[in-house]
Design a protein around this nucleic acid. Structure first.
Lengths: 293, 293
DNA sequence: GAACTTCGCTGATACGAATAAGTGACCGGT
DNA sequence: ACCGGTCACTTATTCGTATCAGCGAAGTTC
C-alpha cells in the first residue's frame, strides 16, 4: 500500500480511502483513477491478516456443519452461502468437526461470524432467524409423504436412527406435522439399527411404506429388508430424503426428495451481512423417482 | 499481554519471552512462575491474528483434498495430520474445493503451508517426500488382490471410472504392479459407467473377480451386476478399496480393504514441521470381509 | 473583508504480538 | 580499582491496514 501511495503521488491514507470507497471522504475522480491504476499495475492485494488485526475480525465466516447429514441439501445450502458471501468479499469455511486442530484453526481465524447450523436448525428461533426454514422443511416433508400417498399408501412409518440426535428428532417432528396435515394416521417410528425384526414388525402392524429422515437411513432400511428376503417397493415402499449420491447406486435405486436449500443459504448470508434479504425464493422440493417407492 | 505484564510487574517483552520460551533469554524461575500465573489468572490467550501479522503467516496448515475419494483412507490421513499438528500448536483446515469463497478464505488465512494432496500423490516425488507412500500403496493393493487369489481367482479386472483422473490413473498403475508381483495375468480395465454390458463382456472374457480402485466404483459394479440379474460373489466377486461407510449398507455387503493412513498423515505433518519423522509406522492394510468377495 | 464551510488531502496512531538493541546491576578476574 | 561479561530485564520497532484529527486552500455567507 505504501508502494501504491508512492507510485500515485498520494499518501497511504488516501490509497486506503480510495480502495475501500471510504464514506465521508471527498476524492476527485482523477485521483481515484490514478490510485486504482497504480494499485492494479503493482498488483496490490490487501493483506488480509493486517486488515483482520485492524478490524478485530477476519473477513471469514465459518459454517459449523458438525453431525449434519450430508446430502444435496447441505451442499446447496453451502452453495447459496458461497454465492452471497463471495460476492461480498467474504470467505466461507465449512467445518465438519474433524478434530482438535480444526477447532484450533477456527479460533485462530477470528471469524467474522460462526454459523452453527445444527444449533440454528434445532434452536427455537430458527424460523424467525432465517425466514421460514421450518415451514419450508414441513413443506418438503409433505412432498415426501404425498409421493407415498399418491401410490396408495396410508399406513406410513418413519425411519429414525437408534440414538437421540436433537436435529433428527426435529426432523421426525416435521414428518409427524406433515402426516397430520395430510390426514394420515400418526406414523410409527421404525428404528434403523440393523435388526431385521424391526421392518418385519412394522409390516405386521400394517405399515406399507417408510419415509426415512435421511437417505442413509433409507439405505439402512433397504439393507435389512434385503436381509430378510423382502424387497422394495413390493413388500415395503421406501423413500429417502435429500438425495445423497449413494442412493442412486443401490438396487433397487432409492427414490428420494431433493431440496433446494440454495435460497436458504443465500438468505442466511444476506441476513448475516446485514443486507436486505432480496429475492431469494427457494425452489420447491421435488421427488427424484427411482425404484424403491 | 499488556495486562499480564502489569499484573506480574514486568514488561510486555518479558511476558512474550516467558510464554514462548524464547531461546537466548535468561529468566529466573521465580519470574517465569509469576508471569505464567498472571497469564493464567487473566485467562490470557494469544491473539493469533496479531501473531500471524508479526510472523508473516498464521499457524494454520491447509490440506487441499480436492477431488480425492473420501473414505477411511482420507479420514485417517487427516486424523494423523490432526494429531501431530495439534500437538505442535498448529491448526488444520481441510478444503474439499467447495467454491469461490472457500478459495478466498484460504488465501485470507495466509497459511503456514498448503498440502495439495492430489498433487503430492500424483507427482513424481511423493514417495521421497513422505517416505514410502507409493510402496505402501502397492502393498495395500497386494492385500486386495491376495484376497481374490485366496478365493481361487486369477482372471481379475480392475474397476476404473469413465473419466481420466490422474490420481485414479496412478491407482490403476499400482493395481497392475501388484498383479505382476503376484504373477497374475495383467488385469483388464472394467469401466464403470452404468452400462450393464461392460461386466457381461468381462465375464465372457473369462474374468471371475473385480478389484475396484475405490469403494464407490465397487458399488457401481454391484449396481450394474444387479441390473443384469447377476450377483456377487456368485457370478463375479467384487472387492472395494478404502472402506466407505456406504459399503456396509449394500447387499451383498461390500468386502473391502481398510487402510491405516494415519501414520502417513503423522509423517507428513512432522516433515512439514521440520521435526524428525520418529516412530510413525503405518499399520498394515487389512481386508474387511463382508459378502461381495 | 472577516468568519465559516467544504474540499482534498496528510500525518499520526492503534490493533497485539515478536524481537533487536540497549541498559543498569552484579560478579569475577587482574 | 578497573575492565569485561553475564544476568535480568526494558525500550523501541516492526508487521499492513483503517481511521481519526487536522490543515491549507478555495469558495460561500453575512
Amino acid at each position: 500500500m505504501r508502494d501504491v501511495a508512492a507510485a500515485s503521488g498520494v499518501s497511504q491514507a488516501t490509497v486506503s480511502f480510495v480502495l475501500n470507497d471510504a464514506p465521508g471522504q471527498t476524492i476527485p475522480a482523477a485521483t481515484r483513477e490514478r490510485v486504482r491504476r497504480a494499485a492494479d499495475e503493482l498488483g496490490y492485494r490487501p493483506h488480509s491478516i493486517a486488515r483482520a488485526l485492524r478490524e478485530g475480525a477476519s473477513r471469514i465466516v465459518v459454517l459449523e456443519a458438525g453431525g449434519l447429514p450430508r446430502g444435496h441439501h447441505l451442499s446447496s445450502f453451502i452453495a447459496g452461502l458461497d454465492e452471497e458471501l463471495g460476492a461480498a468479499g467474504f470467505g466461507l469455511l465449512v467445518s465438519y468437526g474433524e478434530g482438535v486442530s480444526a477447532r484450533a484453526a477456527i479460533t485462530a481465524i477470528e471469524p467474522r461470524a460462526v454459523i452453527d447450523l445444527p444449533a440454528v436448525c434445532a434452536g427455537p428461533d430458527h424460523d424467525v432467524a432465517d425466514g421460514g426454514w421450518i415451514d419450508g422443511m414441513v413443506a418438503h416433508r409433505l412432498v415426501q409423504l404425498r409421493h407415498l400417498v399418491a401410490r396408495g399408501h396410508r399406513a406410513v412409518a418413519v425411519a429414525v436412527p437408534a440414538g437421540d440426535d436433537p436435529f433428527l428428532a426435529l426432523m421426525a417432528g416435521q414428518v409427524r406435522d406433515a402426516a397430520e396435515e395430510l390426514g394420515l394416521p400418526e406414523p410409527l417410528p421404525l428404528v434403523v439399527d440393523g435388526d431385521p425384526e424391526k421392518p418385519v414388525g412394522a409390516l405386521k402392524a400394517g405399515v406399507t411404506a417408510v419415509a426415512a429422515l435421511t437417505d442413509d437411513l433409507a439405505l439402512g432400511v433397504l439393507a435389512v429388508l434385503a436381509d430378510t428376503g423382502l424387497s422394495a417397493p413390493g413388500d415395503l415402499a421406501v423413500i429417502g430424503f435429500d438425495d445423497t449420491p449413494h442412493g442412486a447406486l443401490w438396487r433397487p435405486a432409492l427414490t428420494t426428495v431433493r431440496l433446494d436449500a440454495r435460497a436458504y443459504g443465500r438468505r442466511t448470508a444476506r441476513t448475516l451481512l446485514g443486507l436486505p434479504v432480496g429475492d431469494a425464493r427457494p425452489a420447491p422440493a421435488r421427488v427424484i423417482e427411482r425404484a424403491s417407492a
